[in-house]
Simulated assay, not measured.
Amino acid sequence: MRRAAIVLLLLAALLPAAPAAATASAEAAPSYRARTVTLDGVGVRLRRNTRQVVTVNHTSGHRARVVLWMLRKGRWVAGLRTTDGRIGYGGLVAGTKRRQGTGTTPTGTYDLRSAFGTHRRTSAWDLPYRRIRKGDFWVQDNASDFYNRYRNQRQGGFRWWLPSSHDDASERLTDYGRQYEYSIVLDYNWSQVRRRGSGIFLHVNGRGATAGCVSAPRSMLRKLMNRLDPDRDPVIAIGR
């Protein structure tokens, strides 16, 4: 009996251990499939942990309805809302077909990745934020490695001196103190496809249509700055 017990112990030592760790790992990291939902008539492509969505539903002319949605207990609930949203003077176009300088707003779903503006940062803002300084531009120079990026002229790397009438002129941010008081950056064309366009933001309304961005009343932008949370993977979905 003693010899049999020893043999059993040796066999147990040679057998592979039960895959408990592998099972726990699989449960902790389940597979994910991108999902699409429709909110206010706009198709939204959700990211992995998206719990905040801004929809832009074109109504007529350059007008649009802009709504902030939040996921609560498995249901999308509308929060902030305005019927005084604006789009580009050139209307809407598929993001992959957009061309720089056409005044069109790209349709599709885009990450709301960061923000900039004229105010000092407050503790209520969770998005990465940059305060506009003298010499700050959004680069629209197709010959630059910094195309579709925020950059100061002192850093160089783009032709900041080009006149606004030039096809490759970049946007001097201090020239738009009203619209860019609060401005949230869309990741449209973040891969820097030349001539597709750059500098697509969600910003404060100006006097009329935008040049391709989405805009909304100042009061709504202030509230969005306080509510958008990068941990909730916020996106904006633009549709007809």
Rank of each mutant, 00 (worst) to 15 (best):
M1K: 12
R3G: 10
A4F: 11
A4I: 05
I6S: 11
I6V: 13
V7T: 11
V7G: 09
L8I: 11
L9M: 11
L9T: 08
L11P: 00
L15V: 07
P16A: 04
P16R: 05
A17H: 07
A17D: 10
A17W: 03
A18I: 04
P19M: 09
T23P: 00
A24G: 06
S25C: 06
A26D: 12
Y32M: 06
R33C: 12
A34G: 10
V37F: 13
V37M: 13
L39G: 13
D40C: 07
D40M: 10
G41Q: 09
G43N: 14
V44Y: 11
R47Q: 15
N49A: 14
Q52T: 04
V53E: 08
V56S: 08
V56P: 06
S60E: 12
A64S: 10
V67T: 14
M70A: 08
M70Y: 02
L71M: 08
L71W: 04
L71I: 01
K73S: 13
K73F: 05
G74H: 02
R75E: 09
R75C: 03
W76H: 07
W76L: 07
V77P: 10
G79S: 04
L80M: 08
R81K: 09
R86K: 12
I87E: 09
L92R: 04
V93H: 02
A94W: 12
A94T: 14
A94L: 15
T96R: 15
R99C: 12
G101M: 13
T104S: 15
T105H: 05
P106V: 13
T109C: 15
L112D: 00
R113N: 03
R113D: 01
R113M: 07
F116G: 01
D126F: 00
D126M: 06
D126Q: 08
P128I: 01
R131L: 02
R133E: 03
K134H: 08
D136N: 06
W138M: 01
Q140M: 09
Q140F: 00
N142W: 04
N142G: 05
S144M: 04
D145P: 08
Y147G: 03
N148S: 11
R151H: 14
N152F: 01
N152V: 01
G156M: 13
G156R: 10
R159N: 15
W160R: 01
W161C: 11
L162W: 12
P163V: 00
S164N: 14
S165M: 05
H166F: 10
H166Q: 08
D167V: 11
A169F: 10
S170R: 09
D175N: 13
Y176C: 04
Y176L: 07
G177L: 07
Q179R: 04
Y180R: 02
S183E: 00
S183H: 02
I184G: 03
I184F: 06
D187P: 03
Y188N: 04
N189D: 07
N189R: 03
N189L: 02
W190L: 07
W190D: 12
V193Y: 08
R194T: 09
N205W: 01
R207F: 07
G208I: 05
A211P: 01
V214T: 12
P217F: 02
S219R: 15
S219I: 11
K223Q: 15
K223M: 13
M225T: 01
L228E: 00
L228V: 09
P230I: 01
R232S: 15
